[in-house]
Amino acid sequence: MSLNSPTGFFSTKITDALNWARKFSIFQYPFVTACCGMEYMSTAASHYDVDRFGAGFPRFSPRQSDVLFVVGTINHKMAPVLKSVYDQMCEPKWVVAFGVCTCTGGFYDNYSTVQGIDTIIPVDIYIPGCPPRPENVLDGLMKLQDKIQKGEQSRTLYDPNAKTGRPAELQKYTITQHIKNIES
């Protein structure tokens, strides 16, 4: 039986059904490097229980997972590891930046820290906070589910020339500019 009906009804519905199934069976890969890991554990444990959202099953192999949780500070020496973990994941894949360190580098504006993992890999959901509260994480998780349901992926935004998944208007945005904007 072909999936394409003349109206397209069947094929769009089957994509919806697939995405619905995907969003409630998130196999996450926790890439835990620093203090945010504690908050990640408390979110994953029974009190807050990410299993309610179908995301309770961490896989410690990138090849079996479809959401990469980057939890904690990523330094320059870790960056190639993160990139190769991301590259090993099968499509479709999503990335969650957990904590300000992974979002922007946080307060580690120094020689060793990557200033936001979106300078290496495309990120779908940013969860700021140092560390983010579990409610915050669950909110991010639900936003990710919405994104999965809609079939959206930041990966498609990745700009191979600029080597970044950052939106174009943010690529040139520097911290100096940011301070100027705040002051003016």
Partner: peptide, 20 residues
């Protein structure tokens, strides 16, 4: 050498951006 006092604390290296 990163802990030398004349090394700018927020200097970015070319391997990983963003450059400053």
């Amino acid at each position: 050498h990163a802990l030398r006092k004349d090394y700018p604390f927020d200097k970015r290296q070319p391997l990983i951006g963003p450059q400053n």
